[in-house]
Design a protein around this nucleic acid. Sequence first.
DNA 1: GATGAATGAGGGTTCATTCAT
DNA 2: TATGAATGAACCCTCATTCAT
Lengths: 206, 206, 206, 206
Amino acid sequence: MTSASLEARKTPRQGRSQATVEAIVEAAARILETTGPAGFNTNAIARLAGVSVGSLYQYFPGKQALIAELSRRNAEAALSGLVDVAAHTAGQPTLARLRAFVRFAIAQQAERPRLSRVLDQLEEGLPLTSDARATAPAILALLKPVLAAGEAEPDALTLDLIAGDCLALARTLIDRALDGPASCAGLEDRVVGALAGYLDGAGVAI
Amino acid sequence: MTSASLEARKTPRQGRSQATVEAIVEAAARILETTGPAGFNTNAIARLAGVSVGSLYQYFPGKQALIAELSRRNAEAALSGLVDVAAHTAGQPTLARLRAFVRFAIAQQAERPRLSRVLDQLEEGLPLTSDARATAPAILALLKPVLAAGEAEPDALTLDLIAGDCLALARTLIDRALDGPASCAGLEDRVVGALAGYLDGAGVAI
Amino acid sequence: MTSASLEARKTPRQGRSQATVEAIVEAAARILETTGPAGFNTNAIARLAGVSVGSLYQYFPGKQALIAELSRRNAEAALSGLVDVAAHTAGQPTLARLRAFVRFAIAQQAERPRLSRVLDQLEEGLPLTSDARATAPAILALLKPVLAAGEAEPDALTLDLIAGDCLALARTLIDRALDGPASCAGLEDRVVGALAGYLDGAGVAI
Amino acid sequence: MTSASLEARKTPRQGRSQATVEAIVEAAARILETTGPAGFNTNAIARLAGVSVGSLYQYFPGKQALIAELSRRNAEAALSGLVDVAAHTAGQPTLARLRAFVRFAIAQQAERPRLSRVLDQLEEGLPLTSDARATAPAILALLKPVLAAGEAEPDALTLDLIAGDCLALARTLIDRALDGPASCAGLEDRVVGALAGYLDGAGVAI
DNA sequence: GATGAATGAGGGTTCATTCAT
DNA sequence: TATGAATGAACCCTCATTCAT
């Protein structure tokens, strides 16, 4: 394994290049959604993108970089949405804010059901320096003050753990609901319930 | 994809073979735990098992079969343990029974932290006929009456979904706790809290 | 057995690819001629072709496809030659036409003595959909009207059998003659004699 | 490839060993008939014979030796039968004797249709020292005086070639007839016709 | 920049043969 | 002698990556 950087090789501003990159990223996402990690190979991606492998490698130093980019976009979309939600719900009680987060998360995941889940699998092999993995902390950072609203002084490590658990927990339930046969009714309630219960069990007052 | 059976090729009675099979299975598990799916190849497994590839293929018709066997063992251990727990807690209130299940699940997962998680990933590609995937329903079947204790008449699909969610939810939290830096304190409470909250949100009285 | 198509993967227009394909096909033929089916493996073929295995698989989905292509070329050459001969001898008496066919067949086989024979062996395992196996009927179709020239009404099955026998018979004798030590003298007479005798024995007037 | 002898390791006189050898040979023949060269591997043969691989190697130094034995038996049966036919037809005109030979050959091949053909393929890779390949000359030797009956003095090489051609020619036609859909009617006439025509073309008076 | 042909290490699987029991 | 577990060389095929055009 080469230790090539995981960042994109170029961040082209020109229209054509931009379009190429988009095509590649979209093709990669689609393949991941339809065939899973199995069919995720550079040749297939390039073909589906209507581009040559060479071009793919012009914009991404390797397969890992493509995965990283996919993750980055995924996380970024989540982050920016959550920032909005956080802003809009500022001042509301914690439970209401959580519900708003959950509602957003459901909507977000519903757009590309399998994608996040498969990406998580692929990401496991990636180094932590990756841009994508850096977005997670940002999301956590967003969540932590919400959770800590009523708290006296929970230590940082604990809070990180709790926020991370909340995220994972929500994702698990949402994934399962979107996967199976028509079971999204009441999903929001179930997730919020689980989160509330979790926080209660963790000793966090909300 | 070959339609080769996923069952073991031989179930040898002789001591030597038995030991070989154990060595292979154990090596496979270890590799899965240490390197993840990436390093999981038959040559590496055989080498770590101190055995030739040929021997591996004498007992398992292919890589998939090895994964299946690993899953089967994993699921079987969980199932038999849960059966015991269910028996011992018969008659107790639902919440207490859930707590007992959770406690057992934590102990169980702690033995081989990453294994189940990685197996789940690999299992996704397996056919549903697999013995391993047949154990999941059994676990659900065990869980459903416990959850439905106070219920009037929740329909089957819903109950399957709920039980599955509970399982997934618990696994997620336990996995995360075992993964990260020493955070198992209070884990049981967190999981039980999340389950209770989830069930509440799902409209299941406990 | 994978149901992978037996057709070539790409039919490249660029000169380089074209040359690669030719090199591969030629190497395959040579190996078949020199070592027989035993040495016919993709690595050896690629090596002899001065090409990497990857390239081989870029143009042929598998070993079978390569065999199929070899057969196709072989059969096609025979067919097109025989069509010419048939055209040139139209109107002549049957025996003369047979002799012309035989003369052509000898010349044809002499170019690559062992090839056809070995190919026949390998082809046995191939599905009948193969392009190559579709050429055989075409050759039969060419031969049948020639044989049926003087006939009242021989039924189709019989005629297929007879034409096939003639083909096989000629091939056997020609193969043997080309194989052994300088024994081609009089070959044409022997083959024509055998054919005439066969047809006589089969009740076909010529 | 080891240059191990192709002869059987032991020629056991004891009943049990004898039976084992028979079982192995019969199993090998059956596999060759049903699956062709593809499924012809020592493990499968031993299994079908109800014997361990070890035993197989006790009686045959290798796979080749097994093939050789199969060929030897095949050829021997043909030879001994032909010797009888030759004896019974001594003094008759050549054509009548040929017909008798052909009739016998048809009966013989009909017993195990595919076997001889597949064996021929496998034999190609065998060294000429093999016992089996030594039987062919004996058959030729039997045939040659019959063919040379009316001849002044055809040289040896020519006669070998002619006799060999006759053999091959007969085999080809018989094989094809036994293979296809019920086409054995008139087979004898066709074969004899072809032989007569061949000999005529070869300048051999009969 | 773009292309796509070419590369070859790597991984799954088979099977002839050996040898300890 | 018989057994069958074990061996490992050899083969098929994939796919990330490079580079001449």
